[in-house]
């Protein structure tokens, strides 16, 4: 019982430390060109790797996930915005799985 709370405490402290430290420590713009370019590309690579193939594998039916990925990418490319793209992806999966499963 109390052991569980110690585990939770360790988790909370560690993850908060990781998240807060760089953000509060580095207040000035970084001068080094390589590091700046590196940090510019980080979010796009990270988000892409987390999206593919995980998005396709997240649904019950692989094809529904695949089509949601392709159609979602198309509308996102067309600047439909966060909210619309998200709703489109969910609806595609819901409708396709009604038909496929």
């Amino acid at each position: 019982m109390s052991r569980t709370y110690v585990y939770i405490l360790i988790m909370v402290l560690t993850v908060s430390f990781i998240r807060i430290l760089p953000l509060t420590l580095i207040r000035k713009p970084i001068e080094n060109r390589f590091i700046r370019d590196f940090l510019y590309y980080v979010p796009y690579v990270t988000l892409t790797v987390m999206t593919f193939p995980s998005m396709v594998l997240a649904t019950d039916n692989v094809y529904a996930g695949m089509i949601a990925f392709i159609v979602g990418s198309f509308f996102a490319y067309r600047d439909f915005g966060l909210f619309k793209v998200t709703v489109i992806c969910c609806l595609i999966v819901f409708i396709l799985e009604l038909l496929l499963i």
Binding site: M50, T51, M55, A58, N61, G72, V85, C90
Partner: peptide, 20 residues
């Protein structure tokens, strides 16, 4: 079915960041 449909919501958001 609801869980499955909602499970792509986060990824849809990611796409909306990456693609533009």
């Amino acid at each position: 079915r609801i869980v499955s449909a909602l499970s792509v919501a986060l990824y849809g958001m990611f796409l909306a960041i990456i693609m533009p």
